[in-house]
Amino acid sequence: MLGMGMTLTLDDLRGALSMPKEVLSGFVLQYSVMPLSGFLVSKLLNLPSHYAAGLILVGCCPGGTASNIVTYLARGNVALSVIMTAASTISAVIMTPFLTAKLAGKYVAVDASGLLISTLQVVLFPVLAGAFLNQYFQPIVKIVSPLMPPLAVATVAILCGNAISQSSSTILMSGGQVVLASSLLHASGFFFGYVLARMLGLDVSSSRTISIEVGMQNSVLGVVLATKHFGDPLTTVPCAVSSVLHSIFGSILAGIWRHTVPAEVKD
């Protein structure tokens, strides 16, 4: 989150103002398609309460920062991707605790105020700190920023590996169900993100971007929040599995789209 904040500039805000329809459409789809998909997939597969809560939590998280790279590879609108990731991340302070409490509250007890405080600590403060550093301490940022992506990757690997290893025996027994649930969650995000964006009248490049932003979640935030606020360690499993699957799905989609240039880009 600190590394992401270091990429934010005033130009990003100007960019958001220049394409309000795309940003608003992406925001609405981000916090409707994925939370509802998590809830419906949990119902469809009749998931145990701990897995259902974890899957819904993933669906209520903001877009993942890896989506920016995947958007670039897929010939999407990279500026829109960065703005959408920033917007969904900052608004996650309110949206993630609120939606998780509403949709997962029937499965497990959800401490909405605790989730709010943790999201402030894990998301908003680091992002604002990174943006502040980028604005006023650019020489330091130029030195530190190249180190942030590998550090972020290592952090993701450690957090998700830890979540899976702690519940390894249970995952081996019922892991297929979690993989299927996570696959359906992200597949629905990519599919409906694109289809609904096109139905709203957005161009192909922007629709690809929204599809990727909606389909790829900040699953590691889910791992952190689940570890801290849900008593059952199995709640973290869908979040950890999700971090792997959305990267695979996103990479495959980027590979397909990279070979089909949108008409507006050709023009």
Rank of each mutant, 00 (worst) to 15 (best):
M1A: 15
L2S: 01
L2D: 00
L2A: 05
G3F: 07
G3R: 06
T7F: 09
L8S: 03
T9V: 04
D12K: 12
G15C: 09
A16I: 07
L17K: 15
L17H: 12
S18M: 10
S25D: 07
S25C: 09
F27V: 11
V28Y: 00
L29S: 06
L29W: 01
Y31F: 14
S32K: 09
S32R: 09
S32Q: 08
M34F: 02
M34Y: 02
P35Q: 01
G38H: 07
S42A: 12
S42G: 11
K43V: 15
L44K: 10
N46L: 11
N46A: 15
N46Q: 14
P48N: 08
Y51T: 13
A53Y: 04
A53N: 04
L57A: 05
L57H: 01
G59H: 01
G59A: 05
P62Y: 01
G64N: 02
G64Y: 01
N68P: 02
N68K: 06
V70I: 11
V70H: 05
L73N: 00
A74H: 04
R75Y: 03
R75G: 01
G76T: 05
V78R: 02
A79L: 15
L80C: 12
I83W: 00
I90N: 02
I94S: 13
M95T: 12
L99N: 05
T100S: 12
K102I: 13
K102T: 14
L103A: 12
A104E: 03
K106C: 13
K106M: 10
V108K: 08
A109E: 08
S113C: 15
L116E: 02
L116Y: 04
I117G: 08
S118G: 15
V123G: 06
F125A: 14
P126S: 11
A129F: 13
L133K: 10
N134P: 10
Q135A: 15
Y136A: 15
Y136F: 07
Y136I: 07
V141K: 06
I143K: 15
P150Y: 08
L151H: 00
V156Q: 01
V156A: 03
A157L: 15
L159I: 03
C160S: 13
C160L: 01
N162C: 10
S165F: 14
S165H: 13
S168A: 10
S168H: 12
T170D: 13
I171K: 10
V178Y: 00
S182H: 09
L185D: 00
L185Q: 03
H186L: 12
H186M: 07
F192K: 07
G193E: 02
L196K: 06
L200M: 10
L202W: 03
L202M: 11
T209V: 04
E213T: 07
M216S: 00
V223R: 02
V224W: 05
L225T: 01
L225I: 06
A226D: 02
P233V: 15
P233I: 14
V237E: 04
P238N: 06
P238F: 08
C239K: 04
S242C: 07
V244R: 13
L245W: 03
S247C: 11
S247I: 13
I256G: 00
R258L: 08
H259T: 09
T260C: 15
T260K: 09
T260A: 14
T260V: 13
A263P: 08
A263I: 15
V265L: 11
D267I: 12
